[in-house]
Design a protein around this nucleic acid. Structure first.
Length: 1010
RNA sequence: GCCCGGGUGGCGGAACUGGUAGACGCACUGGACUCAAAAUCCAGCGGUAGCAAUACUGUAUCGGUUCGAUUCCGAUCCCGGGCACCA
């Protein structure tokens, strides 16, 4: 009987499904274990082989845990709101609800193919009103809460209001604007609008204003990566910064707790580092520098007229983490968006500054950060050093960002490399305050130097001087100590249609929460999803909805929530997915608790993973759940990159029309095999030769063609579908059929110089393609669809091959070649149970079973128990690739021993069941079992079967292995030395001299030092 | 630019805590079986020299620590991910 994977897999999947084997209960005597995959967005392109990598890993682990006796929750659902569906709707006129639904169905079909153990009864979709009802509900809890810095947790805004009524805001500094101060009496005197305005500055979900990339032509806001060189990627329209009213989440209030929480979770160190850096906590000070009037600056440039009074009353406030370097300040730098810029420009410098500001404005934030070129401009204005009284020039440069600190820095070139480069570039003299620590060639950021040229802190070690300067600053009242975070509050509004509507109503410019009882506030249907006016979302075009009774006489909010709203809490909904009274019952969340294992890509490191941690903390503070970190353990999944393939077409002068555009529907095209191109066109100046050769081809086969007289040695690199390439060898027949025969007339010059012609004539050589590793995407023709592989080799082969590719957490390029090896392994396994017959028609019955009930030998038991041990270890540490190798080794060894014994094979099947569930289930039943292998119990390995008494030690001379000696494991150092010295190879290397030293590491190696 | 990863044969990778570099698989080469093909089986397979035993060399590059370094430390180069409206 053959290994007929298609029938077996279909049969198993149907059997599992009708027996509801994956149904998970919230009540079980077994310990719980929660395995979660990162929420997928159901894109229109469907699954490619990169997506299931993490899903297969988590599925193996879930099944493994189940065999180990756990009640395992392993759910799946869809993060179904998002921009691509909306974009698709704009371009193709298909409503997001429709396209999303069909994408989900497609996704589901693809997932089902692979045989995952999801409990589909718990599926959630963020765009389902039954789901987003609770997203909106949680948003309202955020809106109705503030962060009490005294108790360090979120509390009800009511509580804040009663505090205001009793003592004003003295006990609660305003996080939105710490200048706001009022007494109880003042609070009571405020009108409704003022009160609400103040409360808004405290709420965890609040409305404010923020700058976005605005593209007038597209009428929409763009992401940074959609802006290239100051214009939109789509269409090349101008993009400007625009201030829009936006909702925000006050995640900055949770900065410290998000940092502290990292100590209590099992994330990789790199992940913790990324989050720590993102939060970017630093402590330092904000220091005020008095600004000298613009007239003074002009005067100081040579004129002798007297000083005018100051025209600027605001000081320049800078943020620094290094107050100890204050005497090393040689200039100030402010961000181009700084509010003082206008006031600081002097007439002399105006033109230059404005030119610079225009330049900066044309750059996206990303480009500004990646800028290598040093750029900046002097404002013409100076400020006064608060301690030395020195005049310091104020510059503007894009390397200072408005969003961080105060948007202004004091530049210390001897201690900061960017300041140093700036000073050098603009010939600003550098003050050295760290003596020999500064070499004049680069900055030295040390804190250990002894200060010089530093007035009252001269002679101090820098790190000790920090406190001294801060004290002096306090004394003089010229600044304040400040803890700063790089992290900013999270923008929570999108000027989009396909997202959750805000349960908010606007009355007199004040935002009020809708009553929870009316939730869900459903997203209205719109046929035409166009942006609204002035940067309002598409919903602003739907007046009848904005003014509908749902909003209780007020007006609805036209922005919608971002993609991460629904994904910030979905792990809780899986625990209690059908509850229509609560987002998740406390009983369910207490039972399942944290996600024990979370698998997903590092691309979510600082977005989703921080937001969902924050939401969890808020829900915990409000006593809605009992844990404040969502994920106990996080494992990364590497990206599977695409492996693109190229063909190379020679350009002919006649390929172009009069405007220089490549002609469409070129009749005859000449392609060169990769190495011919490299050798003859690129590495030597043989373009002409190629042209001649090409002409020969045409002369021979198309004597009537003379338009190809002259070939230009240039060539075009054309991406082709990787699925018609075997390794790097092009399937020429398929290539001719590709894209409705676009290349049916191609003439290919193959690797050996032979030619393939459209007529089918040719000498049958191989055309070799070029290749490049890049992102897997449909537009690059490098996607590989799992469905095709599952069809060809089966789900079990596919699962094991994905794992066999390498460590889960590593990125790697996809290569279908190699899948045969894994498939062969499963066939070998099959042959341990059944004799393969040549006629496929003999299937149907049980075929000829070859497994026996004989008693296994010690050698066989040793193989089994070694395998159990290794599989258990490898699975536990997510080393699935070595796990697959272990199975291969085991099966190879059993075949060598011709072992077909049930006592060995049966436990082996259980080990294999998480990796290749279908074949394991099938053979499990073939051995006479009637229940599912999914509920078997994982075998235990026993020391007695695998114990070794001796080891073949590598014997090294000076660290270099020269020979091998088998020695008893319990040998002593002395015994080993005796045996080693007697060895001929060792004696040869000793050349009669006594050894200096013999290193013997038990169970590892022996090294003789000569 | 900043933060985080990664770099080992022709290819994917293994070597888990500093201890035999290249497990396992692919590709390739040679052989067996077959009328033939497929399937299967056997053998070889980092580089250089050698009939061979063996020697030298080799884990991106350069340097260091160590009896011993793919593994630890320092510097450099290259590739990937993220950088706040893609998800």
């Amino acid at each position: 009987m053959e290994y007929n994977f298609r029938d077996i897999e279909k049969k198993c999947q149907e059997w599992w499904s009708s027996n509801k084997v994956y149904k998970v209960s919230n009540e079980s005597p077994r310990p719980k274990y929660y395995v979660l995959d990162m929420f997928p967005y159901p894109s229109g392109a469907g699954l490619h082989v990169g997506h299931p990598l993490g899903y297969i890993a988590s599925d193996i682990y879930s099944r493994f845990k189940r065999l180990k006796g756990y009640n395992v929750l392993h759910p799946m659902g869809y993060d179904a709101f998002g921009l691509p569906a909306e974009q698709y709707a704009i371009e193709h006129g298909i409503h997001p609800r429709i396209s999303t639904e069909s994408n989900i169905n497609n996704f589901r079909k693809q997932l089902d193919n692979i045989g995952f153990s999801y409990d589909w009864d718990r599926e959630v979709r963020t765009c389902d009103p039954k789901y987003y009802k609770w997203t909106q509900w949680i948003f309202l809890q955020l809106y109705k809460s503030f962060y009490n810095r005294n108790t360090n947790k979120a509390e009800s805004i009511e509580k804040l209001v009663s505090a205001f009524e009793q003592e004003g805001n003295t006990g609660h500094i305003c996080p939105g604007d710490n200048a706001i101060q009022f007494s109880a009496a003042e609070w009571k005197g405020f009108d409704e609008k003022t009160k609400q305005g103040i409360l808004m500055q405290y709420r965890l979900a609040y409305c404010g204003y923020g700058e976005v990339n605005w593209c007038e032509a597209l009428g929409t806001v763009l992401a940074n990566d959609e802006v290239v060189n100051g214009v939109s990627e789509r269409g090349g329209h101008p993009v400007v910064k625009k201030k829009l009213r936006q909702w925000y989440l006050r995640i900055t209030e949770y900065a410290d707790r998000l940092l502290d929480g990292l100590d209590r979770v099992d994330f990789s160190e790199s992940m913790k580092e990324m989050q720590t850096n993102w939060i970017g906590k630093s402590s330092g000070a904000e220091i005020d520098f008095k600004i000298v009037s613009r007239e003074l600056s002009v005067v100081s440039k040579g004129s002798s007229s007297s000083h005018s009074p100051l025209t600027t009353h605001h000081p320049l406030r800078v943020y620094t983490t290094r107050p100890d370097t204050i005497f090393g300040v040689d200039f100030m730098v402010i961000a181009p968006e700084h509010e003082l810029v206008k006031e600081l420009i002097t007439d002399v410098h105006r033109a230059e500054v404005e030119k610079y500001l225009d330049y900066v404005n044309s750059r996206s934030e990303r480009e500004r950060m990646a800028e290598k070129k040093i750029s900046g401009v002097f404002t013409g204005t100076h400020c006064i050093h608060p301690f030395s009284g020195r005049e310091i020039p104020i510059w503007i440069s894009g390397y200072v960002l408005i969003g961080y600190g105060t948007g202004a820095i004091m530049a210390v070139p001897c201690g900061d490399q960017r300041d140093f480069l700036f000073a050098t570039h603009f010939h600003i003299p550098i003050t050295n305050i760290i003596g020999s620590y500064y070499n004049g060639e680069e900055a030295n950021p040390t804190k250990e130097a002894i200060l010089e040229n530093s007035d009252f802190i001269n002679g101090m070690v820098m790190k000790d001087a920090i406190e001294v300067v801060l004290n002096k600053m306090d004394e003089m009242g010229i600044g304040e100590r400040k803890v700063n975070y790089k992290m900013r509050d999270a923008a929570f509004s999108r000027q989009r249609y396909w997202g959750e509507p805000f349960p908010i109503t606007w009355k007199n410019g004040v935002a009020y929460a809708l009553d929870e009882s009316i939730l869900p506030l459903e997203l209205p249907h719109m046929d035409d999803i166009r942006p609204g006016k002035d940067g309002e979302g598409p919903l602003s075009n739907k007046e009848e909805w904005l003014n509908s009774p749902s909003f209780g006489g007020g007006r609805g909010e036209a922005t919608t929530m971002p993609g991460y709203a629904g994904s910030s809490w979905y792990f809780l909904r899986y625990m209690d997915p059908h509850n229509d009274k609560e987002f998740c019952s406390r009983k369910a969340s207490d039972y399942w608790g944290q996600v024990d294992l979370y698998i997903g890509g590092t691309e979510h490191a600082v977005g989703h993973l921080l937001y969902s941690r924050m939401w969890t903390k808020v829900l915990y503070d409000l006593r809605l759940i009992g844990h404040d970190e969502p994920y106990k353990r996080l494992v990364h999944q590497g990206m599977i990159q695409g492996n693109s393939r190229f063909v190379y077409r020679l350009n002919s002068s006649s390929d172009y029309d009069s405007t220089g555009q490549l002609k469409k529907n070129l009749k005859r095209q000449l392609f060169l095999s990769y190495n011919i191109l490299k050798r003859d066109c690129l590495e030597s100046d043989n373009g002409k030769k190629i042209a001649l050769a090409a002409n020969k081809v045409f002369e021979n086969f198309y004597p009537d063609v003379n338009e190809y007289d002259v070939y230009d040695p240039g060539y075009s690199e054309i991406r082709i579908d990787v699925n018609m390439v075997d390794g790097v060898e092009l399937n020429i027949e398929e290539f001719r059929k590709w894209r409705n025969g676009e290349y049916k007339d191609a003439i290919l010059i193959c690797e050996d110089g032979s030619v393939s012609l459209p007529t089918g004539e040719g000498q049958g050589g191989a055309y070799i393609c070029g290749s490049e590793v890049e992102k897997m995407s449909k537009s690059k023709f490098n996607t590989v669809n799992p469905d095709d592989l599952v069809y060809k080799y089966g789900a079990d082969t596919f699962r094991m091959y994905e794992m066999f590719l390498g460590p889960v957490e590593m990125s790697k390029p996809w290569d279908t070649k190699g899948i045969e090896g894994v498939h062969r392994f499963l066939k070998k396994l099959w042959r341990l149970f059944f004799k393969e017959t040549n006629s496929p028609s003999s299937g149907g019955g049980q075929g000829e079973a070859v497994w026996t009930n004989e008693t296994p030998s010690d050698t066989e038991l040793k193989i089994l128990h070694k395998t159990i041990k290794k599989i258990e270890e490898d699975t536990e540490r997510f080393s699935f690739n070595t796990g697959v190798s272990t199975f291969m080794i085991c099966v190879n060894e059993l075949i060598d021993l011709k072992c077909h014994k049930k006592e060995i094979l049966e436990p082996l099947l259980i080990l294999l069941a998480p990796y290749a569930p279908h074949i394991a289930e099938e053979l499990w039943h073939a051995l006479g079992n009637t229940t599912t292998i999914i509920d078997a119990s994982f075998p235990k390995w026993e020391e007695k079967y695998i114990k070794e008494t001796s080891k073949a030690y590598p014997v090294a001379i000076n660290g270099k292995t020269r020979t091998e000696l088998t020695i008893a494991l319990d040998a002593t150092q002395q015994q080993v030395e005796e045996i080693v010295l007697k060895n001929a190879t060792v004696q040869k290397w000793l050349e009669g001299n006594p050894p200096k030293k013999i290193i013997y590491v038990k169970n590892k190696m022996i090294n003789v030092v000569v």
